[in-house]
Write a protein that binds this DNA or RNA. Structure first.
Length: 411
DNA sequence: CCTTAACCTTCACT
DNA sequence: AAGTGAAGGTTAA
């Protein structure tokens, strides 16, 4: 196998309120992280495989880098293994990469407090979704990933992105037999015949969008064009709404406008790129989920804003910017996460556990089998308007699958 | 400016 | 078991 350098585990002090990787890496803002083993997340970034895990007080990380020294390395007989120990010294830039990518600067606890103080709905929904941090992803990767996201679900988006990386991105290394590729460059995605190939790979109509957008970015835009749309200012505590215009700052509006000129990029995708790739905190992507949240909790969907037209789209964003302030898109992502089916189990709190003994008998009363069945009762924690019918807030089954599981037990 | 239909594919649910 | 609808939408008419 290839020579690689595996670093030791290192750690940064981070509380779960400031960052919860299990939520942040699954909430649909990034699509390449893989959970390989016991709560260890890995992804290829900037020429290395970065692995993360966390406990209640620290974020732990390590890297696997391809070794350049194999060109002049001693014969295998003189080495104990192909894996060398912690090769990095003081020149390791991994910590700064992590701080940047995970956007560890902002005081998330303070931000949650602010959003809670101005919005009772946020205050009610957010407690079970703490530690949701907006990542600073590569803008090009975010652009292509969110082009893939149209009319799609997170599982398939992740599969499509994986396919992109496998076929067009550079191989960085392996963990076990799992290959890790970095995200392909715009140039790589202008390869001849890429559209039909992507169609074969199951991208559907998005194949054309990706091919066209890659071509525009690689050939019709100056180098560094996408990065030039970035928010230049460092994060300031950002809780002042002063100086935040209705439609957001000028730089944000310009970035959004520029992105709309690409293929397969509408208002929602452009906002995702602005928020997660370009650092514009006031960007509020309004998708079907957020539209439903806006109707359910913020009185949208009536009168002038009956359907999600462009005008309504802007009105929803403006409403949230006025309510939450400069980092409105961040607050929006917390509520979005709270609405994902992936996390729906968190909305139900175990109320009690009943243990029943069930006997299976023949007609004559002979006991064939006796087993213990655990019956769970759930109460919806202050959320009484979704996830199943609630009777006085009490729901006997949290989901259909729960019901099916129990039926299986009883048979 | 608003409204519709078409667009690829997968998967859970009926 | 085949059919339907929705999944972090965008485009063209």
């Amino acid at each position: 196998m290839a020579n690689v350098r595996v670093s030791e585990w290192r750690k940064l002090p981070v509380s779960l309120a400031e960052l919860c990787i299990d939520t942040t890496l699954r909430c649909g803002q990034s699509f390449r992280w893989k959970k390989l083993q016991d709560n260890e997340w890995s992804c290829a970034l900037h020429g290395r495989i970065l692995s993360l895990k966390q406990d209640s007080t620290h974020l732990h990380y390590r890297t696997i880098k391809p070794s350049l020294s194999h060109l002049l390395s001693p014969p295998a007989s003189q080495r104990s293994s192909t894996i060398e120990g912690d090769g990095e010294g003081e020149d390791d830039d991994t910590e700064s990469l992590i701080r940047h990518y995970l956007n560890l600067g902002p005081d998330l606890t303070a931000l949650y407090e602010h959003w809670s103080s101005v919005d009772p709905n946020f205050k009610r929904r957010a407690p079970k979704f703490t530690g949701v941090r907006i990542l600073k992803q590569d803008a090009w990767e975010a652009l292509i990933c969110f082009i893939c996201s149209s009319n799609n679900n997170i599982a398939r988006i992740s599969q499509m992105v994986h396919n992109l990386c496998i076929h067009y991105g550079p191989l960085i290394g392996h963990i076990g037999d799992q290959p890790f590729h970095d995200f392909p460059t715009p140039e790589a995605l202008t390869a001849p015949g890429i559209e039909s190939h992507l169609r074969e790979l199951g991208f559907g109509y998005r194949a054309g969008y990706i091919a066209k957008t890659a071509s525009i970015v690689a050939k019709e835009r100056p180098k560094g064009w996408l990065q030039s749309l970035c928010n230049p200012e460092l994060f300031d505590s950002g809780m002042d709404q002063k100086g935040l215009p209705d439609g957001g700052r000028e730089g944000y509006r310009r970035a959004h406008e520029e992105l709309l000129k690409l293929q397969g990029v509408g208002p929602k995708v452009a906002d995702c790129v602005c928020l997660m790739g370009l650092g514009w905190g006031e960007s509020v992507p309004v998708d079907t989920h957020v539209w439903q949240i806006a109707q359910r909790d913020y009185k949208f969907g009536k009168g002038k804003n009956k359907s999600l037209t462009k005008a309504t789209y802007d009105a929803v964003g403006d409403h949230f910017r006025a309510l939450w302030g400069k980092e409105a898109g961040w607050a929006h992502s917390v509520l979005f996460a709270a609405d994902l089916k992936t996390f729906s189990e968190r909305l139900t709190t175990k109320l009690e556990v009943d243990v029943d003994e069930v006997e299976i008998k023949k007609e004559d009363g002979t006991v064939l089998e006796s087993k213990v069945v655990v019956k769970r009762e759930y109460i919806l924690d202050e959320v009484k308007d979704e996830f199943g019918e609630s009777k006085d807030g009490i729901v006997l089954e949290s989901s259909r699958s729960q019901r099916a599981k129990r039926r299986r037990l009883l048979v």
